[in-house]
Nucleic acid binder design. Structure first.
Lengths: 228, 228
DNA sequence: TTCATAGTTATCGTATACGATTTCGTACCT
DNA sequence: AGGTACGAAATCGTATACGATAACTATGAA
């Protein structure tokens, strides 16, 4: 029995997280990486079959994704991947500007010089990236950069809200910078300005405003372009 | 068929929401009204039996409450009502100060004079309430007051975050003002100041700061008292 | 007396099964 | 020909059943 016990334990450890969690991660990954495009209909039975699970854990995973806003769920009808409705984009960006601004300000005093250097290096990569412009890579670096700035936020609730906002944006395949190429250069400059503010120990309010404005500007640039 | 349709519709409307939703509402109500005190152990089977449901919808309800932070859930162990951990209180209040401040600022330009009058009436009730001080009633009025201010917020995401924050606070039975009685009077004064700012059409930043500071002051008062 | 260990119990996690609801297609009537 | 009503298929919602996991308890030895 020992063998089986050990064996099963090994198996269990491999799938240490519950099937609900596995399903959640799997579906979320497919959404973020674009395998499930917005509007895609998520049928419980089909997903369950794909993953080799029963529908119950899949159902729970979908509800979690619904709570995060990545999918829309209608009773007795089913779930679909949330769209890139421009209005939704606006709401998400505005919300993120607020919580990310706050997170960055709270985080700022706790950022050590090593992290600053790392952020600066990332920003330098972004600058280089401007030449042979690769929107996807640029967006990824952009997330890296901001992560350094807000990850030290001591309030886990706020940090969670920031992560959720980024997640929602990630589900929009085509990066923002593809839509608004001109914004990229400005963005890199603002990043350096942000770093200098933090280095100089600027007060929280100043940093919060700067971080918020940085994101709001991206939103404005998008809106200006969309208007045309 | 019309009769049956109407009849069935009536029945449906009575139980229009799924059992998951009913369970969610029921458990949440019990938490908010204090029937389930913090630390209370939520056993799926027992709740299911109480409600006359199966455990499946109850389980889903619990997970939703977990996502909102009202309960803590541990795999293979169970769910307990989230505590009034002072640290958690701090985090929640700080987060709420930020999102509520933003929501109030965004909402301000859309508040008509009727709403202002209603808010002022509520605040007047609060002032009267100061005499024969009833913390529970005072807290309820306080929520009414702030609801008027932020409910017009055009960004549903931010509004949702505000609601969640209030929900978490509501799960803390004993109102804040019971802990910090002195704060109540100051609070009423600040409310009137807020109303005047909104009436005078102050700029968004000023209103946001005032609303945020209003909540932050309550938090500070609590912390000062807790320190002793 | 105390600690380790095995067995028991309580509770969760998931699978399967069935009933309920919606949606779509088809046939019939106007 | 167009619209309406009926019916079938797809899908979700929930109940029940069983297996898995963790907490608890009792028993034995040091």
């Amino acid at each position: 029995m020992t063998e089986t016990a050990v064996g099963s334990t090994a198996v269990e450890n491999a799938g240490a997280q519950s099937k609900s969690q596995q399903a959640y991660a799997a579906v979320k990954a497919r959404i973020v990486e674009g395998a499930y495009t917005p509007g895609y209909r998520l049928v419980l039975a089909k997903i369950a079959e794909d993953l080799g699970f029963s529908v119950v854990p899949v159902r729970e995973a979908i509800r979690r994704l619904e709570a995060e806003g990545l999918v829309k769920f209608e009773r007795n009808v089913g779930a679909t991947v949330s769209g890139i409705d421009p209005t939704e984009y606006l709401y998400t960006m505005q919300t993120l500007s607020i919580v990310e601004g706050a997170a960055t300000a709270l985080s700022a005093p706790l950022i050590d010089s090593v992290s600053i250097a790392r952020a600066r290096a990332v920003n330098e990569e972004m600058r280089e990236c401007l030449e042979h412009f690769d929107p996807v890579r640029f967006t990824a670096l952009n997330q890296d950069f901001h992560s350094v700035l807000f990850e030290h936020c001591p309030n886990p609730h706020i940090l969670d809200l920031v992560h959720r906002g980024w997640n929602r944006l990630a589900s929009i395949r085509s990066s923002t910078f593809r839509f608004v190429p001109g914004r990229a250069q400005e963005s890199v400059r603002e990043h350096e300005a942000l770093l200098q503010l933090i280095e100089s120990g600027a007060d929280a309010d100043t940093i919060e405003k700067a971080a918020r404005q940085h994101r709001a500007s991206t939103l404005d640039a998008y809106l200006a372009q969309a208007k045309q």
